[in-house]
Design a protein around this nucleic acid. Structure first.
Lengths: 228, 228
DNA sequence: ATTGTCATATCGTTGAACGATTCTTATGTT
DNA sequence: AACATAAGAATCGTTCAACGATATGACAAT
């Protein structure tokens, strides 16, 4: 092997940049942000015509974007009626937390031989949350919290699980808007995340798992209550 | 509650049938079967025109179907090049088994308060596999095996996890076609599934988990080897 | 063998069209 | 006033035709 071997490797890594996004995917990304930010009230109907004229894309392209978001469960598609921003029920929230408890705790249990990158992401998330909290940006504290738990799943080292968790957390965000006081909701979890991280770094996965389980149970109770 | 309460419940159960499938979803179902059955060689390109003319649907509708299957990872979409039947790499197989080990084992650990229905599905799957094996239908033995593991995940009682597992198993099926001898591959797992079920029914979730872990490790090794 | 050029086949996206389904509103009946 | 009904409007589902953008393969030039 001459020098091209290494170069080829680096090139291959950047290969994904080449597969840039189609218009439909860009539109989906825009709408995804709006939905996650809560700019569309859950239950809102997204008409093909109105959105299409605003974004200047054809109905066909827009429908492809809708299809993508429906698969992510951010929109629900009703035949001949159109797509609506998903409205989570208490049962949905309970199901989402069932997934989180199972996946996050199991990932934590495998933390001993986790990719180093995941650890770094955990630390970044905690630091980001502290920063945001110091500046009273409670929405960003929530976002950093999500990144923390995304990183917890990364401990398992599976890209498919990462992808799945991304979806679960995006869906869960729909329910956060039901909390009227963002600070009271997000702030307490900052310390709990920091504690969990500490136990992970101390190789005490059992203790970390206990804390995480308690965390999730509490969060679920709050959200289910708000969706009653 | 008068009699209408019960009737309303039954109606609600059939509600999903009313939200019947669009043409795109029907097309996706057809293609999904073909892919899973291995009628399309992995790597095959599915041209919009050829498939469209065969199935007599417009390109737009077909594209919606492609979009659905791409999301299920059965097809890969390359911009301006079209869609191709996914070709699993050894790394893909390893990742899929990482997911399975994490999710299935964790689900098993929660088997004590599992929905009764899941237990029934486990028994059905084992019985179905025995029947198929007795009649030398090795492909069906494989299918019943999948149903068994689908039912294992059902123990966790989360519809979202069920859905996720459905996808994982569908994707995994792509790799089964690489095994030249279906009988040698599928038959041994029949007994192992039966053993696992026995331990579950004996409330020995720890023992069941150990067997399951070994099962998955062996299966992964076989498949990764075949994809080397 | 490598590079440049060009024709061809597909894909990406648009816009228009029409039947089917749902929603709205007006009308009429009890 | 409450309810059923029917006509009309608004949308969605699907198809089709078209054109620019992109990728591929063949062929010529170096």
């Amino acid at each position: 092997m001459d020098g091209t071997g290494q170069a080829a490797e680096r090139l291959a890594a950047d290969r994904s940049l080449l597969g840039r996004a189609s218009t439909a995917e860009l539109v989906a990304a825009i709408l995804r942000d709006h939905i996650i930010e809560g700019l569309f009230e859950p239950g809102t109907r997204l008409s093909e015509e109105s959105i299409g004229t605003i974004l200047r894309v054809s109905r066909n392209t827009l429908r492809e974007a809708f299809r993508l978001l429906s698969h992510e469960r951010l929109l629900v598609h009703e035949l001949n009626r159109g797509v609506f921003v998903r409205r989570l029920t208490a049962a949905d929230v309970a199901d989402l937390y069932r997934v989180r408890r199972l996946v996050e705790c199991a990932a934590l249990r495998r933390a001993l031989d986790a990719p180093e990158q995941a650890l770094a992401h955990l630390r970044d998330a905690v630091r980001g949350a502290e920063q945001a909290a110091a500046e009273q940006r409670w929405g960003d504290v929530g976002t950093a919290n999500m990144r923390f738990h995304q990183a917890v799943v990364e401990l398992a080292g599976s890209s498919r699980l990462d992808e799945m968790m991304r979806q679960v957390l995006a869906e869960l965000r729909l329910s956060f808007h039901a909390m009227k006081n963002p600070r009271a909701f997000h702030e307490p979890y900052l310390n709990r995340n920091r504690d969990i991280l500490q136990l992970i770094e101390a190789k005490d996965t059992e203790g970390a798992e206990r804390l995480l389980e308690a965390y999730l149970t509490d969060a679920e109770r709050q959200l289910v209550h708000a969706h009653a």
